[in-house]
Simulated scan of single mutants.
Amino acid sequence: MTRKKSLLMLGDSLVEWGDWDTLLPDLAVISRGRAGELCETLSARLFDEIDSVREPDCILLMSGTNNLLMGSPHFTAIFQTLLPRLTLLCGKSTVFVNSILPMTAPGMTKEAVAAVNRELCVTAEGSGCRFLDMTAPFTEQCLPITRPCFLSDGVHLSTLGYQVWAGEIRKCCLAL
């Protein structure tokens, strides 16, 4: 019997509220999401989270949504110190930085999300990590009225949103 690849997911409510055992049954998921979390608090708890688990095959970081919603688009600078620490602590793990999802929250523009995602991509790749851009999958598979990927708040995911996201995560982790 082959061992399932392990995936450590770190982030905010989008990570916390996912039913990952159902969504990713072919991966051993360790979910460490915290509702309302900001990048700076994730950075502060990073060592404790890594220390509490056996080194995973994949690590996915989903952080920054709350920073952006609170009007702080410069959270990407935190990733510049967080990612090198993470790769040092987990040198055998493949680290994925998840893009900010194409939210439809009031006051959030596609341009603001795209600008932050460009910075996250550059930072991830500059740190030897991979960038998981969810813009195209959400744009292609979700429709606002007939196939919504977001709940009415425009931030949190519907069942379909989680399925789309999980499908992309699965592809990345199982391809390793």
Rank of each mutant, 00 (worst) to 15 (best):
T76C: 10
A124I: 11
F96N: 01
L82W: 02
I59S: 06
V116K: 05
I78K: 01
R118I: 10
I78C: 02
I59D: 07
L61I: 15
F75K: 03
C58T: 15
M103R: 02
G107Q: 03
L88F: 09
R54W: 02
T81F: 07
A112Q: 14
V95M: 12
P73A: 09
P56K: 07
F96S: 01
C90W: 02
S72Q: 10
L88S: 12
F96H: 10
R118E: 15
P102Q: 10
F79H: 11
L69T: 01
N66S: 05
P73C: 06
N66A: 02
L101C: 02
P56L: 06
A115S: 15
L120A: 06
I59K: 03
N67A: 07
V116S: 14
T65E: 00
L88C: 10
P73E: 12
V95A: 07
G107M: 01
S52V: 04
G71R: 06
T87L: 07
S93L: 04
A112D: 12
T109S: 15
G107R: 02
T123Q: 11
A124P: 09
R118N: 11
V97K: 07
L68Y: 01
S99I: 06
T87E: 08
P106M: 05
A77K: 14
T94F: 11
T104G: 11
